[in-house]
Simulated scan of single mutants.
Amino acid sequence: MSDVVYAIRISHLEYSGLKIMDIKIGKSTDIENTLRQYSRGNRDIELLDMWTPNPDKTLSTAERGVHAVAERYAYDKQSEKFVFLQGAYQEFAETVNMLLQNVSREDLAAASASSESDDVDDYTGTTPSVIKILGETHDVGSWADALTVGVAAILRDVDDQERITEIDGRTRSYFVEEGRQSDLVSPRRIPDTNLYVETNFSANDCVRKIEQVMAKYGYDRAELEIFIEES
């Protein structure tokens, strides 16, 4: 199960060239069950976006924050239902993406599978001290450091570094070329490349991004070890 704030389109119409969408924005701990409930009365629903709460915030707090942003862009509001005109929803979603992590159903499925594996470590609340990757050992002081150093080590000997930009979220970039770093919330330059990496992630997501890059370039997960500071 994963806690998310969702945006589900429950109806839409076009009147005299004006597009109108009714969007339900709420919270869920089981999005698949939530979608089943909505689809019983309306088969035309569409899941537009999902966001996970920041590590230091509750799901309810995240929901209230998203509602507050929605009120700035919506034409009308009725409880959890917001009416958006034309491109206002996209502007709203892009604003929320700067505040919370946008996730897809695939991301949630992968996270769920990882959490069910006994071999997966939970790095929540920890600080990394050393990352060992592809035979190299590096001292690090934060998860952003670990992510940047790890990705740099992977890209050092590959010929197609730009292929890393294919790893992204549904509406969010994780890796971009120089000149597009403003698309990221907290960009860091990847050493010895013209690429930038998003570092606005939780500890577990930083590790997951390193694993995704390793898989992208055909490296074995066994070649990654992360050591954390003793508490």
Rank of each mutant, 00 (worst) to 15 (best):
D3A: 10
V4A: 13
S11T: 06
S11F: 06
E14Q: 07
Y15D: 13
S16M: 07
G17S: 08
I20C: 04
M21W: 08
S28R: 09
T34S: 09
R36G: 10
R40Y: 06
R43T: 14
E46D: 09
W51A: 06
T52C: 07
N54M: 06
L59Q: 05
E63K: 09
V66Q: 10
E71T: 11
E71A: 11
Y73A: 03
Y75P: 00
K77N: 13
K77G: 04
S79H: 15
S79D: 15
F82D: 02
V83W: 00
Q86F: 03
Q86D: 15
G87P: 00
E91T: 06
F92Q: 09
A93S: 14
A93T: 12
E94V: 04
V96K: 01
M98R: 13
L100P: 04
V103E: 08
S104D: 10
R105K: 15
L108W: 05
A110N: 11
S114F: 00
S117N: 14
V120M: 10
Y123C: 06
G125D: 09
G125Q: 09
K132F: 02
K132C: 03
T137Y: 01
T137F: 01
V140C: 01
S142K: 09
W143Q: 09
A144I: 07
A144Y: 00
D145Y: 05
T148K: 08
V149D: 02
D159P: 00
D159C: 03
I164V: 15
D168A: 14
D168Y: 06
D168C: 10
V176H: 01
E177S: 09
S182V: 06
S182E: 08
S182N: 07
D183R: 14
S186Y: 03
R189Y: 00
P191Y: 11
P191S: 12
T193G: 02
T193R: 04
T193Y: 05
Y196E: 07
V197G: 09
V197I: 12
S202M: 08
V207E: 08
R208K: 13
Q212Y: 01
G218E: 10
E223M: 03
F227S: 10
E229V: 00
E230A: 05
